[in-house]
Amino acid sequence: MKISHNETIHLGASEDISYIRQKVRKWMVELRFSLVEQTKIVTAASELARNTIEHGGGGRAQLIVLTDNGRTGLQLIFEDNGPGIPDLELALEDGYSTGSGLGLGLSGSKRLVDEFDLKSKPDKGTCITITKWRLN
């Protein structure tokens, strides 16, 4: 697996959510992902970036272009040093929210991507990695 492009985006305020949406959209267009794939990943990025800001108290996102055996993929890593998620299984349940949201951001994003990895430690923070491979 090779990383061919890499960029970090600071996530502090709600404007950063529309910024990362634009950025992800731009990268996916350049990588020739289909419109449906673009929409799915932009939406997942929007959800996870908002969680990083709203629940994680801010953090950063990393955009990475992967190539593996001729496949091309986009990987996004969302990281914060916030309170962490005490019960991962519960947080991934449809409709579960400790705030006033719909509680579909985590579970929904997981369904929108090819690979989903969630790591979290109480009081240390949360790190979520999603990957989408381009259908050739």
Binding site: L35, V36, Q38, T39, K40, T43, E47, D94, L102, L104, S107, G108, S109, R111, L112
Partner: peptide, 13 residues
């Protein structure tokens, strides 16, 4: 739009 509909279904809304 179709791509939005598809995304919303997977998102669960």
């Amino acid at each position: 739009r179709p791509q939005i509909a598809q995304t919303m279904v997977q998102l669960g809304v």
